[in-house]
Design a protein around this nucleic acid. Structure first.
Length: 276
DNA sequence: ATGTCACTAGCTTAGTGA
């Protein structure tokens, strides 16, 4: 990258241990300065830090077990690390063992406050996980609004797997999602509430649909059949949004390899270039 | 063509989550 550009990316890696070589290889090839990762699927002491260090990246991770897990790798500084956001809801079988999951991690990189976010899936509309998802999003919105009240000029990037397709164009076939999560009105309302709070989708203007996705199910040859969903987003505060010069979805990193090659993640990386 | 993948426990497979 030229010295006046900051390249920031997000990627649901679906297990960092299964894919660390592929991820670090892309960091090099993609000339990425900061990468937020989701679904690392490991505890902190299992995270493969060395390959990142060898490639010139600091890395911070938050993972408690085999589920969820978020990380940030940066070659432009990694300061003021924060695990979880104020008011982040907990999840557990009952009130006693409920605790905040490894779904939110922040660091300041080259002056940009980066939040790596893994929004709860929701599972089904009738599942308690769905209410948890909505509460999680509402809490994030409230807290993020406060960050902007505290400092309206702050460059903030809320990036990750939002597990919401905000418009009908963001899924390959709305009929296939009848009664499903990711497309329901409450979820879309929750996403749009982030937009209303002045965090704008800075990638969509550079990647207009229809047929533009960030995720393709592993089953049923979904990628080959172009059956995907746009659920990974980079939302920027006004200051950050004003600095965006380019954005793209790196679909090639989702492409299945030759037989015998390690499988790709089911998500593609999403990136933005910022002037600095 | 019974074409998804990755995790765990404690197994050579089932259960879970996505």
């Amino acid at each position: 990258m030229p010295a006046d550009v900051l390249r920031l990316a997000t990627w649901n890696v679906n297990s960092i241990r299964a894919r660390v070589d592929r991820v670090v290889d892309w960091l090099r090839r993609g000339d990425v300065d900061v990468l937020a990762m989701q679904e690392t699927k490991c505890a902190d002491d299992q995270f493969p830090t060395m390959p990142f260090l060898e490639a010139g990246y600091e890395v911070v991770h938050c993972g408690f077990n085999q589920w969820n897990g978020v990380a940030i790798a940066s070659r432009v500084g990694l300061d003021n690390v924060e695990v979880g956001f104020e008011g982040q809801p907990s999840w557990g079988k009952d009130g006693t063992d409920a605790k905040a999951e490894a779904r939110a991690l922040a660091a300041t990189c080259a002056g940009v406050r980066v939040w790596s976010l893994y929004v709860p899936n929701g599972r089904t509309l009738a599942d308690p996980h769905y209410q948890y998802k909505l509460e999680w999003l509402a809490a994030l919105r409230n807290t993020a609004e406060q960050w902007l009240r505290d400092d309206p000029q702050q460059p903030i990037a809320l990036v990750g797997d939002w597990n919401i397709a905000p418009t009908d164009e963001d899924v390959w076939d709305m009929a296939a999602f009848a009664g499903a999560t990711h497309v329901s009105e409450p979820e879309r309302d929750a996403f749009n509430a982030m937009i209303d709070a002045k965090f704008t989708d800075v990638v969509r203007p550079y990647t207009a649909g229809p047929g533009v996705y960030t995720y393709w199910d592993y089953t049923q040859l979904a990628f080959q059949k172009r059956r995907g969903m746009r659920i990974d987003f980079i939302l920027g505060s006004p200051e950050l949004a004003a600095r965006v010069t380019h954005a793209e979805i790196v679909k090639d990193e989702r492409r299945p390899g030759k037989k015998g090659d390690p499988a790709p993640s089911d998500h593609a990386p999403v990136l933005v270039d910022l002037s600095r």
